[in-house]
């Protein structure tokens, strides 16, 4: 299945891209290092063991069942590329791929994903080895403040896969004929709010990657 290949490709890419060093823009002066799980919560608070396969690597955690997948990534695995914008599924900044499908990581519990494959923005590429969508976002200035960007890019990966799989959208005229268009992208990406409104540039970046992929 071509879809599966796509995500295997992503995972393989991510393993090569784990090491990160500071870029030229100096504000990030230290690289995300190797992190370990937080110590188990205090006695009297039952935790649940869960293993998430994040960007190709199994990560075992003991978690308060209340911990969302988003907070497991950000606060327990220190993978802060995935953003918390609203924590209520209203903005899309927390979008990650689980089993290759894009979801809001804020509206799902980490314990519900024991054994699941999770792909984050860190797994898609690194500053030295950008994923094609990451490179296209830079080229087309598909972001400003950068806070929705991880979600936009992860969402775009999942969205392009949905078009390839023939999943229709609200603006698909004939439900039997699913094809790429800018209007399709605008509708399908509407779950990712960008208050800086890089929307036209995001659409251009996605279009370039789509055209490169089908060319």
């Amino acid at each position: 299945m071509s879809d599966a290949t796509w995500f295997l490709g992503v995972a393989a890419f991510s393993r090569r891209g784990v090491i990160v060093s500071a870029g030229a823009a100096a504000a990030a002066t230290s690289a995300p290092g190797i992190v370990s799980a937080e110590p188990p919560a205090k006695a009297g608070e039952a935790t649940v063991a869960v293993t998430l396969v994040v960007d190709g690597q199994p990560r075992r955690l003991d978690l308060d069942p209340r911990v969302t997948l988003l907070d497991a990534l950000r606060e327990h695995l220190h993978l802060t590329g995935t953003k918390k914008g609203c924590d209520h599924g209203q903005c899309g900044a927390c979008t990650v791929l689980v089993g290759g499908r894009r979801i809001n990581s804020c509206l799902t519990l980490a314990v519900m994903h024991d054994g699941d494959q999770v792909t984050t923005i860190e797994g898609l590429g690194s500053p030295e080895r950008l994923h094609p969508l990451q490179a296209a976002f830079v080229k087309h200035d598909g972001f400003q403040c950068g806070y929705c960007t991880s979600g936009q890019i992860c969402s775009a990966v999942g969205m392009l896969d949905e078009i390839r799989r023939g999943v229709p959208s609200h603006v698909t005229e004939d439900l039997a004929q699913v094809a790429y268009s800018d209007d399709e992208v605008r509708e399908r990406m509407s779950g990712n709010i960008c208050r800086c409104a890089a929307y036209p540039n995001i659409v251009a970046a996605i279009r370039e990657v789509h055209e490169g992929a089908v060319a």
Binding site: G89, I103, N104, V167, H170, L175, G191
Partner: peptide, 29 residues
């Protein structure tokens, strides 16, 4: 459900209703 070929063909109103709701991410979950 929205993408199911039989739903798209025979129950278009259902496919359309699903696709008008929420966002791609939320519909996946």
């Amino acid at each position: 459900l929205a993408a199911d070929a039989r739903v798209r063909r025979d129950y278009g109103v259902l496919s359309r209703a699903l696709l008008s709701g929420a966002s791609g991410q939320l519909r996946n979950k």
